[in-house]
Design a protein around this nucleic acid. Structure first.
Lengths: 206, 206
DNA sequence: CCGGATATCTTGTCAACGGCAAGATATGCT
DNA sequence: AGCATATCTTGCCGTTGACAAGATATCCGG
């Protein structure tokens, strides 16, 4: 359906999505122009409309691609800590996708393909939080853990991308993220980032 | 200079900023149109240019206003926990300002007025983190605490505004934020959210 | 090998927008 | 009263997103 190759352009849909990511990384989603994308791909100004309908259609496709890429990136993290680092790393390296994904005013966030892709990526995050021991003063349970973890990595990534962080933060987002995430879970993750067995009432043996 | 009142319109600059906030809350910063703002204010389509130069000039003014409003809002929080809650509350209630502030591609983030206002609001956050006792496994010191706190409230606020959070989070952002923030600082803040005295090595007496 | 059916892309058009220039009008100051 | 200035208007241009209609390449059945 998509990657067939062999039409007029070859694979215009893919080329447009790639060009969109580049353009957004250069000057942000607000400055994105369908006509500019068409020029970059070497087609006429109305060619994108056939594949995506309109601008929000293109950004919808980009968001879907982003949620799937995020899910794949999260799966590479073999611990809760490393999964958080992978989240930040994804936000920094696929910055265009990330920026669009969390800006529902730019695309059709209620499209079924989007909600499905979003669900897939969220499931990966939750699976990692599940085997975290309950912390002190944990009011919300595992859902609270997931919410806090998601918030801290998302916030750090957003602030990093916005250039809002002070210079002392350094220039390696992965390392800086590691420090921040460790501060959330404290002694509940060990040096390798793996969840440690609950210290208080070791009721369930490993 | 600004609040004079009594010119042609009265106070067009203020009216345009207010209209911009409303318009952005309605349909996001990407859909913002200077001509639409002019219509809302009842002036011609070129009137905004006189006060702000261009679109990014208007958003620059909105960002400055936002950073000052944020600093004022943070000052109402009398504890670290409540200051975090105030951050989230600001992001939700003055959503337009908040969205623009952390989107440097939309305005001139390096304008001197912006960096000054940003500095003012950041100083408020840091002052609250200063009297937090060092936590276990705290690698980054007070700066790390500030970064973690900022990240978690910023991330939560952003996700809330994006509508990305699951329904179980509830409909009161202040309450949900309280739970999340408490999970970051654990036992280091008491029920009132105040910082507790350091338990390990009380080297510096209060 | 051919010829329609279909997907893909082009050309042409229109309203809206941002930005600029030049002019009009009101305000403040002396 | 009269000039300088701030404020706003009118007019214009290039660009954009969206739509309509036409052109062209690919696919598939015969």
């Amino acid at each position: 359906m998509t990657g067939a190759r062999g039409y007029h352009h070859g694979d215009l849909r893919r080329a447009l999505l790639a060009a969109a990511a580049v353009a957004i990384e250069e000057s942000g989603p607000a400055a994105l122009s369908l006509r500019d994308l068409a020029r970059r791909a070497g087609v006429s100004h109305a060619a994108p409309a056939h594949h995506f309908g309109d601008k929000s259609g293109l950004l919808t496709a980009l968001a879907v691609e982003g949620f799937d890429l995020l899910a794949a990136a999260l799966r590479t993290g073999d611990s809760l800590l490393e999964m958080g680092v992978a989240y930040v790393d994804f936000a920094v390296r696929r910055r265009a996708h990330f920026e669009v994904m969390y800006r529902p005013d730019l695309y059709r966030a209620d499209a079924p393909e989007v909600v499905a892709a979003r669900k897939r990526s969220r499931a990966v995050l939750r699976s990692a939080v599940a085997d975290l021991p309950p912390g002190p003063g944990a009011v919300g349970g595992a859902a609270g853990d997931a919410l806090a973890a998601w918030s801290i990595v998302h916030g750090f990534a957003t602030l990093w991308n916005a250039g809002a962080l002070p210079d002392e933060t350094g220039d390696d987002p992965r390392e800086a993220a590691r420090v921040v995430i460790r501060r959330l879970f404290g002694a509940r993750v060990d040096a390798q980032g793996r969840a440690v067995p609950p210290a208080r009432s070791p009721r369930t043996p490993a």
